[in-house]
């Protein structure tokens, strides 16, 4: 943890000299600097700049108490695409994802600087209504978390809390969302049974249905398949493929193949820094950095 301590940056070695891959050092140079508390600018592929971005993350930093977890994150998330975040455990992927819908606000010790711009408007301005903001984003968690109520009520929960009462609207949204989450055929006959009676994979798809029922701008997925078996994982990945285009999807994953299969863009993070960010194909085939190459081929991490 001391590596990420803000004070340790004083002891950092040169931050400029090592910004390019060393001729003989290879894998560890950049990452070594980061581990020692230094900072290196992220390698951002120019292809991203051509895309229409829905979310801009600007100089975003985050601390848990005294410990800094995110360092100068600058990312722009393209509209209607799937963007994956990969990196070893504890690199801040989930923290970054939870910062997008300000779920980190619930933790008292969190401090942030910098900003995120969603559709041209800041997320972190004091005047922002967090509840309104979260309604524009859907989130799917690592572990499925259906509510202790019926399948129907689970799906329309976001509308319920908005005070929607029309049965016509609710029924329609429920069916559309469940179809969107490829769950309709399996549950249409038992919509009013407890959601806790579904299997793990069904529960996760139910959570996706819930996340898309309010038609969010951005869908956040925090390792949605890590607790699922390969079959259920396949279904969810197919689903992500179907959803892209309609929704901007930001997905955190530990699974390199999953990132390669499902995403259009990929950001590689390490200890709270973005190391490289670019189109998934390029990042996995011929990344700019040796470090990324080493990570995606499994030589470290």
């Amino acid at each position: 943890m001391n590596a990420t301590h803000p004070d340790s940056s004083k002891n950092a070695k040169s931050t400029i000299a090592l910004s390019k891959p060393g001729p003989n050092g290879g894998i560890s140079d950049r990452l070594q600097v980061i581990a020692n508390g230094g900072s290196v600018p992220a390698e951002i592929h120019p292809a991203i700049l051509d895309e229409d971005s829905v979310l801009d993350i600007r100089n975003f930093r985050l601390w848990y108490g005294e410990a800094q977890a995110l360092f100068d994150i600058n990312l722009s998330i393209p509209r209607g695409k799937v963007t994956a975040m990969i990196g070893p455990s504890g690199c801040g992927k989930s923290t970054l994802l939870r910062s997008v819908n300000r779920l980190n606000d619930l933790i008292d010790s969190v401090r942030i600087t910098g900003d995120m711009i969603l559709n041209g408007r800041s997320i972190y301005e004091p005047s922002v209504d967090v509840i309104e903001l979260r309604k524009r984003m859907g989130m799917v968690f690592q572990k499925s978390n259906p509510f202790p109520m019926s399948i129907y009520e689970n799906v329309i929960y976001p509308l319920r809390i908005d005070g929607e009462r029309s049965h016509g609207v609710l029924d329609e949204v429920c069916e559309r969302s469940l179809r969107g989450a490829a769950l309709w055929e399996e549950v249409k006959d038992r919509l009013h049974e407890s959601a806790l009676g579904l299997s793990g994979g069904q529960q996760q798809r139910l959570c996706i249905a819930r996340a898309i029922s309010a038609e969010p701008d951005v869908l956040l997925m925090d390792e949605p398949c890590s607790a699922l078996d390969p079959l259920a994982t396949n279904k969810i990945e197919d689903l992500i493929d179907q959803l892209k285009g309609d929704y901007t999807i930001l997905i955190v994953t530990h699974n390199m193949q999953q990132a390669a299969r499902t995403s259009d863009y990929t950001a590689f993070m390490y200890l709270g820094h973005v190391v490289e960010y670019g189109p998934t194909e390029t990042l996995f085939q011929k990344p700019l950095l040796q470090e990324t190459q080493d990570y995606v081929t499994g030589r470290f991490g």
Binding site: I131, F147, Y157, A211
Partner: peptide, 14 residues
Amino acid sequence: PGSMREGSYACGAS
């Protein structure tokens, strides 16, 4: 479970 609360907050519940 905290995950249930988070799920609810993420849906935009107060």
